[in-house]
Design a protein around this nucleic acid. Structure first.
Lengths: 209, 209
DNA sequence: ACCTCTTACTACAAAAACTATAGCACGTGT
DNA sequence: ACACGTGCTATAGTTTTTGTAGTAAGAGGT
């Protein structure tokens, strides 16, 4: 992503603050006044931000309110198809879609579950929401864990002084014990979505007249 | 809910159509042209609709775009705490909250599940989405069913020539067979939400400047 | 020296939205 | 019969936002 100039970054930050405070985005004129900046200057900055992909900005003509918003990649929670070997940040780069869940964002990601190691609690195809910053504090929390360099899997996680115990919900799968240093906790379970709910949320946000 | 006059209803329907077609709501002027109606007339109709609770309409002053939207009760899916005895339509009246899931609406409702008859597939506290118009077409679909005048429960539903078989997922609960005329299928399972996802969606929509 | 990007301004034009006011038509109540 | 309110429509004028065009100065790279 292209770097921002000083003013562009100030505009972008103020815009993000406004969205957090009020939930919506301001008028251009009001916003320009707020920034102590001329309307035309602000517009130029927004056009630059739009060209660089930081905002969605689309003028609609004289007198008409323009479209101004953040792109889904910046406000939605990334939904990952599967998490292959490699760092999590890389998988987040090519998310298959984004969930527009306000309140969450920076510390969260979602995973479309493959397999049934947590069945029947979590089904194949469910989209599970995780916090990627927190470490599990209680024993028995569901976590997205990576053993050494393998794929990420979903398990109940128990901690002993020198190892993690990875416990599936499905009794057909084995419980395994792994030394602490071989385990990376990629995220702590927060909730899930199943079925047609997904289609309603994972809409690409298209903009209309 | 107060009745609408001829013109008010036409405005309301056209507004709903526009929202369905384009996803957003139109400018007042453009919309008035579309209706072959004067701007001021349209505004009066919208004010009347607003007073009767059919739309949210808030003027912001000259030159400023007004706020125009449907209230959550009309676009969101009602989430029912529990479904007591009595008709479903009555329970929908006092929904505890609404899920803003675009695409769905009129034929759907959600239920906050109590009990664990479908555990571990569906947990206590999950919010399950249903279609209330469709009847189950395949055997073994999960449905919200009411036996005679009792509370609504969640079960797998199988149909025989003269009875329904209500099968729980949890083996601790009994499978029961009930004559056709004693069973009402209130809804067919579509999907579910679990955990903190709910807090992010079930926000009351407040409107800002 | 030349070009591009960033930043900023002035002046003007177009559209949307609001206000005030007024004219009909159609009831209801007195 | 009359006044009154309600629903619906329209005209004229005001304010605000938004957009367009053109100008200009400074930074940085080629």
């Amino acid at each position: 992503m292209k770097p921002l100039s000083t003013m562009q970054e100030r505009v972008f930050n103020k815009l993000r603050d406004h969205k957090r405070r009020t939930g919506a985005l301001p008028d251009l004129s009001a916003f320009a006044r707020d920034m102590g900046m001329h309307y035309v200057s602000l517009k130029q900055h927004l056009e630059a931000l739009s060209k660089k992909g930081y905002v969605v900005f689309e003028s609609k003509g004289r007198g008409r309110s323009p479209i101004l918003d953040f792109p889904a990649e910046l406000t939605g929670i990334p939904v990952l198809g599967n998490i292959p070997a490699g760092p999590l940040s890389e998988a987040i780069m090519d998310a298959e879609s984004y969930l527009p869940l306000s309140g969450f964002h920076e510390d969260h990601f979602a995973l479309r579950v493959r397999g049934d190691s947590m069945a029947d609690l979590i089904q194949d195809g469910d989209v599970v929401l995780f916090n990627k910053r927190k470490q599990p504090e209680r024993s028995g929390q569901i976590c997205a864990v990576r053993v050494q360099e393998s794929e990420v899997t979903l398990k109940y996680l128990d901690k002993t002084p020198e190892s993690y115990i990875l416990r599936p919900h499905n009794p057909l799968y084995p419980t395994v014990e792994v030394p602490l240093n071989q385990v990376t906790v990629e995220g702590v379970y927060l909730g899930l979505l199943r079925g047609e709910v997904l289609a309603a949320l994972v809409q690409d946000r298209t903009y209309y007249s």
